[in-house]
Design a protein around this nucleic acid. Structure first.
Lengths: 205, 205
DNA sequence: TGTACATCAGTGAACGCGCGTTCACTGATGTAC
DNA sequence: TGTACATCAGTGAACGCGCGTTCACTGATGTAC
């Protein structure tokens, strides 16, 4: 807002933010290159100075989302240390917190239909995020007797799936469906029951 | 295919099926009224003899999806009777089976962005499906001591969330992400661990 | 400090396209007599 | 069985629209001297 004139200053980032706003308020299909340009106060053609096209803009929005996501998860993980259990639970909560706090990013990442391998940068950030969850799961799995220990990647997948399902089904103001419980409670209790099933927390809470 | 001529015969259903095919192969955004009409061998204008518009066609596709879904779930439920546990597990499996067998319907129902309350018929079928899952959860919850029994709606929500998450993250040929495990195994083991956490199946497999 | 100049971010007009939707129409079908 | 007629499913042309993308351009900015 400070600089006004022929040159924008930081159009690239302004476009990403406009795109995120549109995606958040109108859904992945409601996003339009032209409208993002208009929101940024610029002609559609100007977008091509910074991005190869429409898809490329979405990919960058998703990349920034994965970057934030990975940071948030890692922070939660570290805060839970040295307890493997606390770390694991914290990353689960962080997942939901991220989805609520950055809905535009979340949609760009998971609902826009763009491939995680579209650009190397995007793939890199995505795998960084995945690595945090898997490390948390791996440490936790050390506390299960090896004989009955499921692969760590499997229960990180379980938690990821439940988190994602809660977000998609119950955390969105999805039209017409009222959530029966606060999504935070739903996820927290779900993960709790799951961990009890793994013998990682006491059955008699 | 039997009747060819000026009148189509059963254009309404043909349009729904064309729409489902498009949604399945191109995603919810790739669906186009004009293209569905073309696929059905008809002018776009003809669609308006049977539907109020584009959205209305999608809503009908979703409605048919919920109708099948409810039937499939109920069948699984009944097959598992009189064991509450077997019924519950069967509905979980049926969820995934439905998603795989009717991908077009699944997308129309959960990813097209149309509200479940868009038409009374759609809302009706959707609540029928929900009722089956909730009944299965309710019966199962009878086997938990009342003092430590979570609301049935809560763990039907947990299972729904995990199922949906598995479908969205691991059961789609989602571009660029390879599933670490067969989704069926993932869901089966996830539900197993969860039920163990509720004390509904023995901790020692 | 002032001038000449290269750079390159953004303009504005234009494009071809497919979209959803409308409209007056046409002609196949089925029914009444 | 044959004819007249009402019905209404589908036609075909047209619409206005916003889209993503291209192109030659312009003018603000920053640098060299």
């Amino acid at each position: 807002m400070s600089k006004r004139g022929y040159h924008h200053g930081n159009l690239r980032q302004a476009l990403v933010e406009a795109a995120l706003g549109l995606i958040e308020s109108r859904g992945p299909a409601g996003f339009t290159l032209s409208e993002a340009a208009k929101l940024a106060g610029v002609t559609p053609a100007a977008v091509y100075r910074h991005f190869a096209g429409r898809e490329d803009l979405i990919a960058e929005a998703a990349r920034q989302g994965y970057a934030i996501f990975a940071d948030v998860m890692r922070y939660a993980y570290e805060k839970g240390q040295p307890s493997a259990l606390a770390s694991f639970e914290a990353t689960g909560r962080a997942y939901l917190a991220f989805a609520r706090q950055y809905p535009g990013h979340y949609i760009a990442m998971f609902e826009s239909g763009i491939s995680v391998n579209r650009t190397p940068e995007l793939a890199h950030e995505a795998s960084r995020a995945r690595a945090v969850i898997e490390r948390a799961a791996d440490e936790l799995s050390q506390h299960i007797p090896p004989s009955k220990r499921p692969p760590a990647a499997m229960f990180s997948a379980h938690i990821w799936a439940m988190s994602h399902g809660v977000v998609e089904l119950f955390a969105r103001n999805s039209p017409g469906t009222a959530s029966p419980f606060p999504p935070e409670d739903l996820l927290e209790s779900g993960i709790g029951i799951y961990l009890r099933g793994l013998g990682l927390i006491a059955p008699d809470d």
